[in-house]
Every structure is written in C-alpha cells, then in structure tokens.
C-alpha cells in the first residue's frame, strides 16, 4: 500500500536555512545540507527546499546546496523558488533535484507547465499553488483564489479550476498552500485541500498551517491529501518526523515506519 508522505520543508535564503532545527550536535545549524542529513536520518519521506529569495545572485548558491545534498541524501528532493525557465529546471535536475516546483511562472503562462512536462517528464514538475479563501472561510460553496508574491498579489484565478488546468497540462503533483493558514499553526484549510484534491487525479501535497500532529492527520483524512508538508513543527523541534509518523499510524493513516527512528529508540 502506498504510504502518505511526510515532507519537511526548509526555507533557504542565500544558501542558509532561515528557520532551522537547533540541534546541539549540528556543527552549523544554518547549513541546509546538515539539516537535510538530519531529516534523512529521521525518516523523512521527501525533502523540500524553498529558495525564498531567488535572485539571480542566489541561484548558483542554491544549486550548490542542492548538489551537496544530493551527494549524500538518497531520498527525493523537491526545490522551489524562482523557477522561471526550462533552463532553471534543467539546472536544478542536473544539480540533483528530483522535482522542480513552479509557481508564478505557471500562473502567468500555464503553457510553461506543458513545456516543462514534455521536456523533463511530469514526474519532476510540481506546480505550487498559493490560495486564499475569497468568500470567507467556512461559507457554503467557498471560493478560493490563486495568489502570488507570498499571498500579496491576487490573480483573479479560481484555485480549483487552475489546479485542474495544470493537471491537464501535465503537472505531476500539486503543492497546495493555504495562505490564510500559513504560519498560523491553526491547521490546513481543509475545505480548500479537499476541493483541490478531489478535483484532480494527480497527488496533492497539503501545506500551510500545521501546528499539531492532528493537523497532519486531518490533511489526509479530511483534506484527502496524498502528502503533508510542514516546516515549523519540525524546525523548532516541537515534534520529530518519527513522532509525527507514529501518531499518524495510530490515527489509521498509512505511513512508512521502516528507516524511521521511533520515539523511545536510542537514536530517535
């Protein structure tokens, strides 16, 4: 049976982790490669790097981070932030990323998704969608709109229709972030997650708002997500990946426990 993926996300700026786990045994807590190695050992199912300041100066720095991570972490790696051209995707894949996450470029030019999928295969094209409720959270027939620029720029595009569009164009996965919930620790926007997950035949990764382990469970059971992405709860050491998986398992969500140190293990 396919397992639900737990994906820690690392925000990287200029080659440094912005919010990182402050483990005592880290030589350099700001080094994304060290953080990646820890998550690899902790049994993360996949890793996501988000380049939050993807200026052209920073691009080569990020490629170096990706290459050094791929040299020693033998797990799937998704990289997003500032992916604008097919060459950007090619460079990330050549550095060792498995998937490139595309956001603003796909909003401006959805055909880019088709071009990328034809060139590199759907399996490495993740379309990131930042969405907000525009009819008021919890209202009947709630409407969700795609936003860009960290939730500041409305696009007028319906998030569910857009998800269908990019899936049809060849996206392999959707990384769906609720901008209403991002950073709130109030849990995923479940109606949004469910509306998008049920609308497309490709996997949806739920993101934005995780504060408790119950939130991870709800993303799957109520949001119908195939994978859950979280940053803060892992970064700040609130929970380990092993604790998250053990909790989800008890709640009846299928997770991969092999190669995952469990709470109580000496090396957990």
């Amino acid at each position: 049976m396919l397992k639900v993926r737990i994906i820690p996300c690392l925000d990287v700026d200029g080659g440094r982790v912005v919010k990182g786990v402050n483990f005592v045994d880290l030589v350099d807590a700001g080094d994304p490669v060290e953080q990646a190695r820890l998550y690899d050992q902790a049994g993360a199912d996949e890793l996501c790097f988000l380049d939050i300041n993807a200026s052209s100066d920073n691009r080569d720095t990020m490629l170096d981070v990706v290459a050094r991570t791929a040299d020693e972490c033998f797990m799937p790696l998704t990289v997003g932030g500032g992916v604008r051209t097919l060459d950007d995707i090619r460079n990330l894949l050549l550095a060792g990323a498995d998937k490139a996450s595309v956001m603003t470029t796909a909003v401006k030019n959805p055909e880019f998704v088709r071009e990328a999928a034809q060139k590199f295969g759907s399996q490495c094209v993740v379309v990131a969608i930042d969405a907000k409720s525009v009819s008021g959270e919890g209202t009947p027939n709630e409407k969700f709109e795609v936003f860009t620029h960290g939730g500041r720029e409305p696009t007028g595009i319906d998030a569910v229709a857009y998800a269908r569009q990019v899936a049809d164009l060849g996206a392999g996965e959707i990384l769906l972030t609720s901008m209403d919930r991002d950073g709130t620790k109030a849990g995923f926007n479940l109606p949004l997650t469910r509306a998008v997950s049920d609308a497309v035949s490709i996997p949806v990764i739920a993101s934005g708002g995780v504060g408790t382990l119950d939130h991870l469970v709800e993303g799957v059971t109520e949001g119908h997500a195939s994978a859950v992405l979280a940053a803060s709860i892992f970064h700040f050491g609130t929970y380990t990946v092993g604790e998250a998986k053990a909790y989800m398992q008890r709640a009846g969500v299928p997770v991969r426990l092999d190669q995952t140190p469990q709470p109580g293990d000496n090396n957990a």
Partner: peptide, 10 residues
Amino acid sequence: LKIPHIGWND
C-alpha cells in the same frame, strides 16, 4: 488512487 503512483510503497 492518484496517477502518477508517487511515494513510498511496500
């Protein structure tokens, strides 16, 4: 079940 089959399977 979603297509592609993406993730960890036993």
